[in-house]
Design a protein around this nucleic acid. Structure first.
Length: 802
DNA sequence: AGCACGCCGACT
DNA sequence: GTCGGCGTGCTC
């Protein structure tokens, strides 16, 4: 028997199956989808069996046997093997990448080189001998670190040692040993007093601990920050100032016991939507639904009841949610309805926990998976429903290879399982809504809020007026007044700062003009290093203007504000306000996210100030005010989806106010109140926005009218990057037909990342049958010739941002 | 990708 | 004469 194996080497020349002989003793055990160890050239690597067969074209002498069978039960179903092939052609990735992304990282291979002693240790060079001590094998890394590779090479040639590469499965994460400082401050002080004065370091450590009662640290971290050795630390611990504890690195995904909930009564709209979903389920017709429901319209309840029916039919459901931040709240809701049948998969879980959840899924011990993007690969064999909540979110697209979109994978799998996909959103992506309009997807609409709360009143504030009236602060008079009232009434508020695109565009504070490129409908980007404005689409550049090109005002400047600045401004205006700031800086720590939200939920602060991450998911009854400090920031990004993103963001943020019995109020501050993305978000007018934006997309030939492909070329040297980018573009122009638009090459908006200069080019097309083949050829050219010159090239079909 | 093989310049 | 630089080519 012959096994076809995809080896764990992500490289162009080996991106194809290799044949291996299956030893007799495994003939009855091997299956497609099993992991194996195989000899590959001079080494051993991990591989996946993709097929079994009897014949091979490989000449007798070349065929090698499998060296080890790693799974008795396959880890990949035949569906997954097919899916991997589909992914390679649709995202232009290596097959091995596609296979690996479907599995928890615990199942991936870890390669460890070890050196084994073959003769008497006396035959070794002295330095090596001491490394061995009395062991017979040592890790290769040790020799590398000790810089004894020369000696090692000599010994290998002498035959006194042997280097072996072992393929290992990545182990599960163990509980780690941490140090918990005593909670009792009085007792701590006592301990400090008892330490003899000559133990200076110990006194220092213990005193430091007095200031951090109850805190938990890893020993390493503590030693580093306090500049001490473990000896000092353990002495202090021995005296009782702290204790070793076994701490799980990540908490158990289910800490609280979920309270069981029952299906809620549906509104008429919800009922209509659910009935359509159930009909498709009954007919086993693979149907993709777009569930367009305004914020608070009860999409989740529709999901829950659709899942209920799926489970009753003995089938499984896969629910995708966009972000980690959303997962605890969402998974809680699913678990309180479906109890132990739910598994969660998100990036907050440890390797081991993810592996455990994955195994529960594979063994069929759970029936529902709630998770982030990669949960779309959950190894269920009888899926009855796929759900993508907030389908417009860009986190569903993986940004590195394999560059897949979870929506596409879900739809592909739904065809295999003859089941439905529900894409849910208050602000669907233009692509999805367009497909719904063309009846490719089935549109379901929820226009009313489930609890019949009124939508919050939204006021758009023209900041140009504020400036004319002499208000130069970042708070308009209206918003400041609203904040004051909330502080008096002890109600809570959320202030949203859209920080993306920080200081990158130039805006006139008098007339709202944003300096735009004369060739493209896109704002110019300010480059501080060269004091120039550049267009990232066509490469046009000009000097930074001293006055507004429209109204000649001098109040023209780079736009953008940071959260810290806003925070201090709030304290200046409202010294009594308590502010919780939530941005990348304050949430870097694990669990910080939840801690801040919990604190806000307990009403420990009046104001929650944050960036993107507070736009979604939070639902607190006491929030009655939402302020968007500057709606323009995301609007002026050099990306054709800027308007769409802005509209989505504003709608999401507005939805945070008045979700319960208290009415909500929203203030949106902007310098361009007349922009349709801002104007139409006021009343959550999705459809008019859709119509407007579609006009723009048609005019400038962007999705959904055209497909786009983003090609990026990077190099350490600017000139090389530019040269190869234009080489690629020239070649593509020759190969592709006339109706294909090729824009560029131009410098990417962040022109240098990790010391590599980036150039990019955008291909727009409607129909181009030979596109995939042409791009594959381009990649082949790159991989055979260009890599050697230090060029890196990536191709992203359907990029989520440019 | 990794690793071996192989062919030329600077050292004992 | 040998060590070691990295260009070339292969992996069932």
């Amino acid at each position: 028997m012959i096994a076809q194996v995809i080896v764990d080497v992500a490289a162009y020349p080996v991106d194809r199956p290799f044949d291996y002989a299956v030893p007799d003793e495994w003939q009855a055990l091997v299956e497609a989808g099993c992991r194996v160890k195989v000899p590959f050239g001079p080494r051993n690597v991990l591989g996946f069996i993709t097929a079994l067969k009897e014949e091979t074209d490989v000449p007798q002498g070349k065929l090698k046997p499998l060296s080890q069978l790693l799974d008795i039960e396959p880890v990949l179903t035949s569906e997954m093997l097919q899916l991997a092939q589909w992914m390679t052609t649709h995202t232009l990735c290596f097959e091995i990448d596609a296979l690996q992304v479907m599995l928890p990282s615990a199942l991936r291979a870890k390669y460890e080189k070890t050196i084994h002693l073959k003769g008497p240790p006396e035959d070794l060079p002295a330095e090596l001998q001491s490394l061995f001590g009395n062991k017979t094998s040592i890790p290769y890394k040790k020799v590398e670190l000790a810089e004894l590779l020369k000696q090692l090479k000599y010994s290998i040639e002498q035959g006194t040692v042997l280097v072996k590469t072992v393929v290992k499965q990545q182990g599960q994460v163990k509980a780690v040993r941490k140090i918990k400082i005593l909670d009792d401050q009085v007792r701590l002080q006592q301990i400090v007093a008892d330490i003899p004065a000559r133990a200076k370091k110990q006194v220092m450590v213990a005193e430091w601990m007095v200031d951090h009662p109850g805190a938990i640290f890893s020993p390493d971290e503590l030693c580093q920050t306090l500049q001490i050795t473990t000896a000092v630390l353990s002495a202090v611990i021995e005296k009782g100032a702290a204790a070793y504890i076994q701490e799980e690195v990540y908490r158990d995904p289910f800490t609280k016991d979920a309270v069981k909930t029952k299906p809620l009564a549906l509104t008429d709209e919800q009922d209509v939507a659910l009935k359509q979903i159930l009909t498709a389920m009954k007919n086993e017709q693979p149907t993709t639904f777009l569930l367009h429901g305004i914020t608070g319209s009860g999409k989740t309840e529709v999901y829950l009841q659709a899942i209920q029916t799926t489970l009753e039919k003995g089938k499984e459901a896969i629910v995708l949610v966009p972000e980690i931040s959303l997962t605890p709240q969402m998974s809680e809701r699913f678990r309180s309805r479906f109890g132990e049948q739910v598994a969660v998969l998100h990036s907050g879980l440890s390797k081991g926990e993810k592996y455990d959840e994955w195994r529960k899924i594979q063994r069929g011990e759970v029936k529902v998976v709630v998770g982030a993007r990669s949960a779309v690969f959950a190894p269920f064999t009888n899926v009855g429903l796929f759900i993508l909540d907030e389908e417009h979110e860009s986190t569903y697209k993986q940004e590195d290879s394999p560059r897949y979109h979870a929506r596409d994978v879900a739809i592909w799998r739904s065809e295999q399982h003859h089941c439905s996909v529900i894409l849910g959103s208050a602000t669907p992506s233009l692509e999805s809504f367009a497909r719904a309009k063309k009846n490719v997807y089935t549109l379901l609409t929820l226009n009313k809020r489930a609890m019949e709360q009124a939508l919050p009143t939204v006021e758009i504030i023209d900041m140009r007026e504020q400036l004319k009236n002499g208000n130069r602060s970042m708070f308009s008079e209206e918003l400041a007044e609203a904040i004051r009232i909330r502080l008096e009434k002890k109600e809570q508020m959320v202030l949203f700062l859209n920080r993306r695109g920080f200081s990158s565009f130039v805006l006139c504070r008098d007339c709202g003009t944003v300096v735009q490129c004369k060739n493209c409908d896109i704002s110019m980007t300010y480059h501080r290093s060269q004091e120039k404005l550049k267009c990232h689409y066509c490469g046009y550049e000009e000097h930074v203007p001293q006055e507004c090109p429209e109204c000649q005002s001098e109040h023209i400047r780079f736009f953008g504000t940071g959260t810290q600045k806003v925070e201090s401004e709030i304290y200046k205006l409202f010294p009594e306000a308590k502010v919780l700031r939530m941005d990348v800086d304050t949430t870097r720590q694990k669990g910080a996210h939840e801690r801040i939200l919990d604190a806000f939920g307990r009403e420990e602060a009046d104001v929650l100030l944050g960036t993107q991450m507070i736009a979604k998911g939070l639902d607190f009854p006491n929030i009655t005010l939402v302020g968007v400090l500057s709606a323009d920031t995301s609007l002026n990004l050099p990306d054709f989806r800027a308007a769409e993103r802005t509209f989505q963001l504003l709608t999401q943020v507005s939805g945070r106010a008045g979700r319960h019995d208290k009415p909500g109020e929203v203030f949106i501050q902007t310098y361009t109140p007349e922009h349709y993305a801002i104007e139409l978000s006021k009343d959550q007018y999705y459809e008019p926005f859709y119509v407007q934006e579609m006009h723009m997309r048609q005019r400038f030939a962007y999705p959904p009218y055209y497909f786009v492909v983003l090609i990026q070329v990077t190099h350490e040297d600017v000139l090389m990057a530019a040269e190869y980018a234009s080489k690629a573009v020239d070649w593509l122009r020759m190969q592709l037909s006339q109706n294909v638009g090729i824009i560029g090459p131009t410098a990417a908006s962040i022109s240098r990342v990790q010391n590599r200069y980036r150039y990019q080019c955008l291909i727009k097309y409607k129909k181009e049958p030979k596109l995939t083949a042409t791009l594959q050829q381009l990649i082949r050219m790159y991989r055979t010739d260009w890599v050697k010159k230090g060029v890196q090239l990536t191709v992203d079909l359907d990029p989520s941002s440019i």
